[in-house]
Amino acid sequence: MNAKTITAPLTPPARSRLRLSLDRFGLPLVFILLCVVMAFSSEYFMTWRNWMDILRQTSINGILAVGMTYVILTKGIDLSVGSILAFAGLCSALVATQGYGLLAAVSAGMFAGAMLGVVNGFMVANLSIPPFVATLGMLSIARGMTFILNDGSPVTDLPDAYLALGIGKLGPIGVPIIIFAVVALIFWMVLRYTTYGRYVYAVGGNEKSARTSGIGVRKVTFSVYVVSGLLAGLAGVVLSARTTSALPQAGMSYELDAIAAVVIGGTSLSGGVGTIVGTLFGALLIGVINNGLNLLGVSSYYQQVAKGLIIVLAVLIDVWRKKKR
């Protein structure tokens, strides 16, 4: 018997191939469609400058969403990214204003973020606190610590080298966009080409099977929160550079946009399924909607309605897809 014959009539190959490709290209299709509609609605939509702005505006949420993808892939959630972002931004800005140089400042921000991620990871992986609860706690703790850190005041007068991270350009492209692109590329490769990436999928897809297969489930679970914290820290640095000061109240409810981007991008909240590319499109979709409705002068109220509808729709497609399977 040939090893590669068709199995059962219940899973016709042609249909599954079609479905696979729909899974893969459905979101980009929606995205392109939206762009076409926008291009016809506003002559300024398709300009270089506008696209640079969309990308720059997306970069913060995008960086957060990349980390969030890792967490959600393991069936977890990280509600604390907005607060971690503010905390890390403030830490990094404080170091920068003390005159320690750019590298030290950026590292301080990322380190601060990663450390809070370590606490999250410890709570979830070692103490078995449900991720929703653990990171909800951190959401509040990190925000409080941010206010304590500088007595509720923003950190201003940041050095120019630091501000370049938010405002500067490398050639024609803004630095935040480049940071975002590099982050997305690295974490896409890690997920796709390394054993660690496969373990993340396996732990989220079926924790018991992963354990039986000799994967350190606890380590993997722990690590995704560190990744998320680290990237939230980086996003905090970029945000304070972009707003020229580190504000303690920055990043409120950013976690929701990050989760939205991940979910729109096709990552399943029940774990094990999803890609960074999907998340990129999810984040861009949100960026384009916000930008488009601003260009068209549509009230922000409708903007919120539109975003909500798209999130629900994206999950509906996911549910529908699973049912069909």
């Binding site: 999928y201 396996a202 897809g205 079926n206 018991k208 099977s209 992963a210 354990r211 039986t212 399943s268 774990g271 094990g272 399924v273």
Partner: peptide, 9 residues
């Protein structure tokens, strides 16, 4: 299904 495979992979 419970502990052998990762069904979604």
């Amino acid at each position: 299904k419970e502990s052998g495979l990762v069904l979604s992979s």
